[in-house]
Design a protein around this nucleic acid. Structure first.
Lengths: 225, 225
DNA sequence: TTCATGCTTCGATCATAACCGAAGCATCCA
DNA sequence: TGGATGCTTCGGTTATGATCGAAGCATGAA
């Protein structure tokens, strides 16, 4: 009928509740098996299989074989960004599947959002970095200042960003806090460094991030209000 | 089942072909009547009516009554940005409803994308402004330089941006050109100024923008490669 | 080889919702 | 007032696709 990209096709892919649940689960950033995703979505393995095939055909997910397991993951950070945009809008429009924000207190406190820190601690870090002038807003986008670059270099023990062309700093709406947290390359690197330092570790079966008492202390020393 | 925003609900709204066609038509930026949208989507008025009610309930569109007409439009620039993101991904993933890019040569040449200039001339302007240092990329976002601000002030006869909190400069993937053009406040202002100056005017029944010969000459003088 | 596990394909069922014809409301015009 | 237009509501049909049981295929273990 009309020209232009076929947005209906990929929107319809995301629009099925079972597939949306799977994609949301994959926002955890790690690759999951078909069985795990089936459980996540509350459907049987056969059904999940056909959904996964469709998602792959639509370019939303990719898979790796490993022995008799087959791991599924989001196809790219672009897909994650698209899902984030949808989540942000859905949260803003008041379409929540349950209460405003995750019910589990641990999820509210700290969780992973694809590859970066989200939840209360995510927003604390983000706002602290803004307050200290490590980040600034420019036209509603986020830029790392020179001071921020020094800070990042010292904390990460590496040059922030490197050669990748992905956005260095992005703002991601946290739907439990209704405020923003840091995404993009920097967001990924910051979380990675915190786990490397032993401040925090990922819960194996969920998106929850558990901080050790010492890790939490260091975190607050670094990002205190 | 899961916590978090209900992305399935709004994705499903966009995922129906008829509704997607309507939303795409509304990307033209102007408010349209139910009959016009029905024709656009190739369905009857009754069917369109129920689709429009659902879109409104989902917060994607809003409507204004005016006499016995009822005009429908996108609810916000945020919705437009969401649709743009979907279009960008769909185009990138190769999901085109027809050939790569709009079929109509005039559409390819210059058209409106919600509220800014798109098509070949949109990309020419954007790349010229980058080449002249009026805009720079920073972490894949676009920032207006001081020189660019001077240029904009002179051309627009106004301070770019004003007090609005919307992004000043955004990059929007042009799916006919497969390159970017300028969106955001600046994109809107630039197009508005060009029509004010009589360089171009909108085709009443489509998204095509027609440049006058003199307007096109001035345009190229200002944004020549 | 034989068995178990993880996953996919096949076939059939069933529910959702997209659709239109007809009728019902408004609004505007004469 | 009567009639035209724009749109919505109602009712019923139909098609899409989401789902699962059962069987089929791989892979790896015994």
């Amino acid at each position: 009928m009309k020209d232009g990209p076929d947005i209906a096709r990929i929107a319809a892919l995301i629009g099925d509740p079972a597939r949306a649940n799977m994609l949301t689960a994959l926002m955890g950033g790690r690759a999951l098996t078909a069985s795990e995703l089936a459980q996540e979505a509350g459907i049987t393995a056969q059904t999940a299989s056909s959904h996964l095939a469709r998602l792959a055909e639509g370019g939303l997910i990719g898979q790796r074989r490993q022995g008799r397991h087959r791991y599924h993951q989001l196809a790219s950070a672009e897909v994650a960004a698209l899902l984030e945009a949808l989540m942000g809008f859905a949260a803003g429009a008041g379409h929540l599947r349950r209460r405003p924000g995750p019910r589990d207190p641990a999820m509210r406190r700290a969780r992973v959002c694809y590859d970066h820190l989200a939840g209360e601690m995510g927003t604390i870090m983000f706002e602290s970095m803004l307050a200290r002038g490590h980040l600034v807003r420019a036209d509603e986008t986020i830029v790392l200042t020179d001071a921020g670059r020094d800070f990042a270099r010292a904390f990460l023990q590496a040059e922030p960003g490197g050669k990748s062309r992905a956005p260095l700093c992005r703002e991601c709406l946290d739907w439990s806090e209704r405020r923003s947290h840091l995404a993009g390359q920097m967001g990924r690197a910051m979380l990675g460094r915190m786990t490397d330092l032993g401040w925090a570790r990922r819960q194996s079966d969920s998106r929850v991030i558990r901080f050790s008492p010492e890790g939490e202390r260091q975190f607050h020393a670094m990002f205190s209000g």
